[in-house]
Structures are given as C-alpha cells and as structure tokens.
C-alpha cells in the first residue's frame, strides 16, 4: 500500500486492522502523533489529511492510501518551527507536551476551516459568511483536544496570536 506522509511516499504492507495512528507510530516511527485514548475521545492523535484534521486512532490506515497526510513532523522541526509551534513555546501552551502535537495539528486544521467559513456550535448566526474567531469560538473549536496539564489558556493564546498575525 502506498502512503504520502509529510510529502514523502511510503510503500508499506501491514495488518489490515492497523489504524493510521499505529501505522505512523509503530511502522514508520513517526511518534510525534500521540495515542491518548485510541477511542476518538482525546484528540492527541490529530493529523491532517488533505489539510483536514482527523483522529488517526479511528482511521483504518487502509482507507487513507494516496491521501496527503501531514503530521507534526511535517509542520516544522525543532530548528525550524512552524509559527504555531513557536507560539506554543512562547505562550507555554503545554506542560508535559503529550497532547501538544495534536493540539497544534488541530489548530492548523481549524485555521483552514475558519478561512473556509465553517461555523461552530457557538456561532450565533449560522448564515453569516464571515465568522470572527473570538475567545468562545476558539475554545469551542479546540474542544476536541483534551489537555490534562491544564495548558488551555496558553494554547488559546498561542492560536489567537498566530491567527491574528495571519489576518494582519
């Protein structure tokens, strides 16, 4: 089976039951994508598929052949951080760092959704064409990523700063 991950092609055979998450972690040693519940209930495994955020733990890898998969390793490296990664460091948007890759990938996907005009459940006017991402909007849209260390304030500050810079 052929996979495109962070711009590189991988030809790989595996047990058909393998999740996209385990494919990344156990077969490709791309361990930046984390396993927190394996049930779609924590968001630590969030990756981007064709730019959309999904939970890799609920994805059977076989369903994602040929799609453009981006993981945290594809966003930036310690020496060349993505703007969101750098903002997470600056705003201390993490403590243990385990949910962090998922939070960051999720924020990248969220930004794309926002640019597309996707509403959220806290959007007052669903018919609006432009939705300002205020504090509630950001918090709701990031609620699929749990953080147990309680870095929520720093995470939202980091995301808000990067989105504001993008908009400027």
């Amino acid at each position: 089976m052929r996979f495109s991950i962070n711009g590189a092609d991988h030809e790989i055979d595996f047990d058909i039951r393998t999740s996209l998450l385990d494919l990344l972690r156990e077969h490709l040693q791309l361990t930046g994508t984390k396993k927190g519940c394996d049930q779609g209930a924590c968001g630590a495994c969030t990756v981007l598929v064709d730019g959309e955020r999904i939970n890799a733990c609920l994805a059977l890898a076989v369903q994602y052949q040929g799609r453009a998969i981006t993981t945290i390793e594809g966003l930036g490296t310690p020496g060349h951080l993505h703007a969101l990664q750098a903002a997470f460091v600056e705003h201390d948007g993490f403590q243990c760092g385990y949910c962090t890759p998922g939070q960051i990938c999720s924020a990248v996907g969220m930004a794309a959704e926002a640019r597309r005009g996707v509403p959220s459940v806290v959007t007052a006017d669903l018919a609006a064409t432009q939705i300002a991402l205020d504090h509630d909007e950001l918090r709701e849209r990031m609620s699929g990523n749990l953080c147990r260390c309680g870095a929520h304030n720093g995470i939202i500050d980091a995301v808000r700063q990067v989105l504001a810079r993008e908009a400027a």
């Binding site: 779609g40 968001g43 969030t46 959309e52 955020r53 999904i54 939970n55 609920l58 994805a59 999720s106 996907g109 969220m110 959704e113 509403p119 959220s120 459940v121 959007t123 669903l126 018919a127 849209r141 609620s143 699929g144 990523n145």
Partner: peptide, 23 residues
C-alpha cells in the same frame, strides 16, 4: 443547509469534535 435548515447544521456542530465531524 445553514440557511434553510439551521437546526440541522447546529445539531451536527454540537456533536463530537471537529476532527470526528471531518471523518
């Protein structure tokens, strides 16, 4: 859907997480 059936859009958005709704 947002314009004709807002309850449906809102119900979907109230469910799960964005990641799961994308799948």
């Amino acid at each position: 859907i947002r314009e004709r059936f807002p309850m449906l859009a809102r119900a979907i958005l109230a469910g799960a997480s964005a990641q799961i709704r994308n799948m």
